[in-house]
Amino acid sequence: MQKTILSSDQTLQKIKRIAFEIYEKNFEEDGIVLAGITGEGYEMARLLEVFLKEISQLSVQLMRIDLNKDHPHTSPIQFDTDKELLIRKVIIVVDDVLNTGRTLAYSLSPFLGISLKRLQVAVMVNRAHHSFPISADYVGYALSTTLNEHIQVKLSGEDIGVYLS
């Protein structure tokens, strides 16, 4: 059985609030890069881009981080943007759920070889079961759950929201 944690309106409001926080911390920048992890992370980055363009004059570049979330250590991590375009930029890596931190740890690793201005992390839900030393700069909703519970974030289609099963 699936339980609604955040409705569509609540979910979009949380993402809009994150957009305001991103703008507040980066208002002096010429622009930022929203690097969404394939799946709902990319969808959240896309929504953040829309909200940031509504509330600010920031130049916002959207990019996708492709990786196998189940086996990130065995498959290459790829960007849909040339790494040269990321030099001296503020990068915000976006994902739907921060659970153990494994996916984010692997997705951050390619940025270590690039001279960035700043690297930040935004997530919709922080479950706080961290096995890796990863924390988020921007969190939509912090939720304590058991390891057996599953959080699903849906950011496209008709049933946008956050669900617990």
Rank of each mutant, 00 (worst) to 15 (best):
Thr81Gln: 13
Gly161Val: 00
Ser109Tyr: 07
Leu85Ile: 03
Met44Glu: 08
Ser107Leu: 07
Arg88Met: 10
Glu149Lys: 08
Ala19Ser: 15
Ile32Cys: 01
Ile18Asp: 06
Ser135Thr: 14
Asp66His: 14
Val93Gly: 01
Lys25Cys: 06
Ile15Thr: 04
Ala128Glu: 09
Met124Val: 13
Val123Trp: 01
Gly41Asn: 03
Ala122Gln: 04
Ala35His: 01
Asp66Lys: 10
Val90His: 11
Asn126Trp: 00
Ile92Ser: 02
Lys89Gln: 15
Thr74Trp: 11
Thr81Leu: 11
His71Asn: 11
Asp82Gly: 08
Gln61Phe: 06
Lys89Pro: 07
Leu62Met: 05
Val123Asp: 06
Tyr106Phe: 07
Lys154Tyr: 05
Leu112Asn: 14
Lys154Ile: 12
Gly36Pro: 12
Leu112Phe: 13
Arg64Pro: 00
Ser135His: 05
Met1Arg: 01
Val125Asn: 03
Tyr163Gly: 02
Leu62His: 03
Phe132Tyr: 15
Ala142Asn: 10
Asp137Gln: 08
Met63Thr: 11
Glu84His: 04
Ile87Leu: 06
Ser165Ala: 14
Asp96Trp: 03
Ser135Phe: 10
Thr81Met: 14
Gly31Arg: 06
Arg88Ser: 15
Gly39Trp: 03
Gln61Asn: 07
Leu147Lys: 14
Asn148His: 10
Ser8Pro: 02
Arg88Lys: 12
Leu155Asp: 00
Ile18Phe: 09
Val94Phe: 01
Ile151Trp: 07
Ser75Phe: 13
Asp137Pro: 14
Ile92Met: 12
Ser135Cys: 12
Ala136Ser: 07
Leu12Trp: 00
Gln78Ile: 13
Phe111Arg: 02
Ile55Gly: 00
Ser144Asn: 15
Glu158Pro: 08
Asn126Leu: 02
Ile55Asp: 04
Val60Gln: 05
Arg102Glu: 02
Leu58Asn: 03
Glu28Lys: 12
Ser165Leu: 08
Glu24Ala: 13
Lys89Asp: 09
Thr145Asn: 08
Gln152Leu: 13
Lys3Thr: 12
Ile15Gly: 10
Gln120Ser: 11
Leu119Asp: 03
Val50Thr: 15
Leu119Tyr: 00
Phe132Trp: 11
Phe111Asp: 05
Ala128Phe: 06
Ile22Leu: 01
Ser165Met: 13
Gly140Lys: 04
His71Tyr: 12
Leu62Asp: 08
Phe51Thr: 00
Ser144Pro: 06
Thr100Met: 06
Phe51Ala: 10
Phe111Gly: 04
Glu40Pro: 03
Ala142Gly: 09
Gln2Val: 15
Ala35Val: 10
Asp159Gln: 03
Lys89Ser: 12
Glu40His: 15
Pro72Val: 09
Thr4Arg: 08
Glu21Asn: 10
Glu29Gly: 03
Gln61Ser: 15
Ser165Pro: 04
Ser56Glu: 06
Gln2Asn: 15
Leu12Tyr: 00
Leu104Val: 09
His129Ala: 05
Ser8Thr: 08
Ile134Tyr: 01
Gln10Leu: 09
Val93Ile: 13
Ile37Asp: 00
Ala122Val: 02
Leu48Gly: 04
Glu21Ala: 11
Gln152Val: 14
Glu24Thr: 15
Tyr141Met: 12
Ser56Arg: 00
Glu158Asp: 13
Ser7Ala: 06
Leu47Glu: 14
Arg118Val: 05
